[in-house]
């Protein structure tokens, strides 16, 4: 554990909680892509199956349980409790164009051809592109609420901090995981355009294009 990873994890947690609170407090999921949230729920589910097979630390276990719980709570709020406010017409990204190639890639390129390892690899690849339906939705409607931009900023910051974490771990522990690093770089790059707008527009709600 190093400072980049810790702050990265906390930033990730902040993003998840910001989104949950935004939906809960406003009683609305307008402007939020339910498809991205389903993808994140799939990401956490397929990655954290190792909860059942190995114990790493109390921190690790708690965070995994919280991430999974929040992901499903968010999906529940969007598709059940506040589904009347869900803007499905604008959430039109074809997720099969992500899930199918990513599934194929996970089978082809992985550390070990085993069930859990392929699911872990699938989750890493899928996470790197899971935000695309959300970015697509924002580009389609041309706007995002301020709180939604904070959510996206925290989510992008998390992966950017993980890149520093991997540099740290390479130098000080000789550890590197090429699959996680490449996917993490892809994921971070997808946020670059957003980061630029977020900083230059001071995080205000704005018209947005990608």
């Amino acid at each position: 554990m190093n400072i980049f990873r810790l702050i990265g994890d906390l930033s990730h947690l902040a993003a998840i909680i910001i989104l949950l609170l935004k939906i809960w407090k406003s009683r609305s999921c307008a402007g939020i892509s339910g498809k991205s949230q389903i993808l994140f729920a799939i990401v956490f589910t397929t990655r954290y199956l190792d909860l059942l097979t190995s114990f790493i630390s109390l921190y690790n276990t708690c965070m995994k349980v919280i991430y999974i719980g929040c992901a499903y709570a968010t999906v529940y709020l969007i598709y059940m409790k506040f589904r009347a406010t869900y803007d499905g017409n604008h959430d039109s990204f074809r997720v099969e164009f992500l899930v199918v190639p990513v599934g194929g890639l996970a089978v082809l390129i992985n550390h070990d051809f085993s069930f859990l390892e392929i699911l872990w690899t699938f989750s890493i690849y899928l996470e790197s592109v899971a935000i695309l339906p959300q970015l697509f939705m924002i580009s389609k409607t041309g706007e995002a609420e301020t709180i939604t931009t904070h959510y996206l900023f925290c989510l992008g910051l998390y992966r950017a901090l993980y890149l520093f974490n991997w540099i740290w771990r390479f130098y000080f522990e000789g550890f590197f995981d090429m699959i996680a690093i490449v996917a993490g770089v892809v994921q971070t790059v997808l946020y670059c355009d957003f980061f630029y707008l977020y900083v230059t527009k001071d995080g205000k709600g704005y018209r947005f294009s990608i």
Binding site: S54, W120, D177
Partner: peptide
């Protein structure tokens, strides 16, 4: 070299 497939990151 034995690689241990225990992913300790979130």
């Amino acid at each position: 070299r034995e690689f241990i497939y225990q992913h300790d990151e979130l």
